[in-house]
């Protein structure tokens, strides 16, 4: 049995678009502000109040998207829970540090201490879903989701697991937004800073799946020729050729500095391809690349691409997409290439 395709059984998102649904494909919400917080669902429908009382927003979001994705997939107990997050539970971390400073390192609240680490999210999902399987957190700035998916894909490819819950979650508090903006990481130029919580369940069985991860490659500080060869290797891994790529989805966000890197890749490697983007819809944050994955999966599942995802509609719109190549980078250093195909 070849294990090249890891089938996407389900996805769920909470973002600056309507939560836990795919309304954004027909009726996206547009924002004028460059800092927008996620639209929250009614968590009482998903988490008992006595359990929810200790959870901050990111914990409620991640648990809800995870449980919804698990339920939709029909898989009760995925073999692995693999999570990406850039800054983890920032709200708890900020509160903990504030008390640490104000109380002279005395009288620290245990809940904030326990729940301020990056791996809080993944372990919390495991405890809530009674899952004792492989559990790990990847914190690699803007490629955190890509790293989590890469781990799941490799473990699947080498026969270690047959299914996985992969997610990426980041919250952007008002304080962290100010800091990230000063660092030039979010909210620059025309960019919208959002928040992300995306969960997906992947499985070895294609039944009920509409799309699959066909190949992944991640490289560090590549030259143009290395990007060319990586894409060729990626396509070879999936037994495809360049002509098979329906569209290339990139992380253009409105930040001129980081966008130029995508334009360079497109100009050098994909001049004839249809280019798509998604961060103008979902916003930028460390976990934003998970929205690229989610949006591409939605397009493959529904068999069409909303016109607002095209970077340049004059290039021509495509019919039913069959294969979408996702390209993401973190700080212009680490580049990821993820190939999704319809099933």
């Amino acid at each position: 049995m070849t294990r090249n395709s890891f089938y996407i059984k389900s996805t769920a998102q909470i973002s600056i678009q309507q939560p836990l649904c795919e309304d954004w494909m027909e009726n996206p919400i547009w924002y004028d502000s460059n800092y927008v917080r996620s639209l929250e669902p009614d968590y009482k429908q998903y988490i008992p109040p006595m359990e929810a009382r200790r959870m901050t927003r990111i914990m409620k979001r991640s648990l809800t998207t995870s449980n919804v994705a698990i339920k939709k997939s029909g898989l009760v107990l995925p073999d692995a829970i693999i999570t990406g997050t850039g800054w983890g539970c920032m709200d708890n971390t900020e509160q903990f540090l504030e008390i640490l400073c104000n109380e002279g390192e005395q009288l620290l609240k245990p809940t904030l201490f326990i729940q301020s680490t990056h791996n809080t999210i993944s372990s919390h999902i495991a405890i809530n879903t009674c899952n004792n399987g492989y559990n790990i957190t990847y914190s690699h700035r803007c490629v955190s989701f890509d790293m989590a998916l890469f781990d799941a894909y490799l473990q699947y490819k080498f026969g270690k697991i047959d299914s996985a819950l992969v997610g990426s979650h980041d919250e952007v508090t008002p304080t962290s937004f100010v800091l990230l903006k000063k660092m030039g990481l979010v909210g620059c130029d025309d960019e919208i800073c959002g928040e992300a919580s995306v969960s997906t369940v992947l499985s070895s069985t294609p039944s009920d799946a509409h799309s699959a991860v066909a190949a992944i490659r991640i490289i560090y500080k590549p030259s143009v020729s290395e990007i060319h060869s990586t894409v060729n290797q990626l396509l070879a891994d999936a037994e495809m050729c360049t002509e098979d790529i329906s569209a290339v989805m990139v992380g253009i966000s409105g930040n001129k500095t980081t966008d130029n890197l995508y334009y360079d890749i497109v100009d050098n490697c994909f001049r004839d391809k249809t280019i798509l983007h998604y961060k103008h819809v979902f916003g930028e944050c460390f976990s934003a690349s998970a929205f690229g994955f989610y949006a591409a999966d939605c397009c493959l599942k529904h068999g069409y691409i909303p016109d607002f995802l095209y970077v340049d509609k004059s290039q021509g719109m495509i019919g039913t997409p069959k294969t979408i190549l996702l390209i993401n980078h973190s700080d212009g250093k680490t580049f990821s290439f993820i190939l999704l195909r319809s099933v």
């Binding site: 006595m50 200790r54 009288l107 609240k109 245990p110």
Partner: peptide, 17 residues
């Protein structure tokens, strides 16, 4: 009230503070 061990730690901090 159905509190647990983490709540007990929170109450200890509350009494001191």
């Amino acid at each position: 009230l159905g509190l647990d061990s983490i709540d007990a730690l929170e109450l200890i901090v509350l009494m001191e503070k």
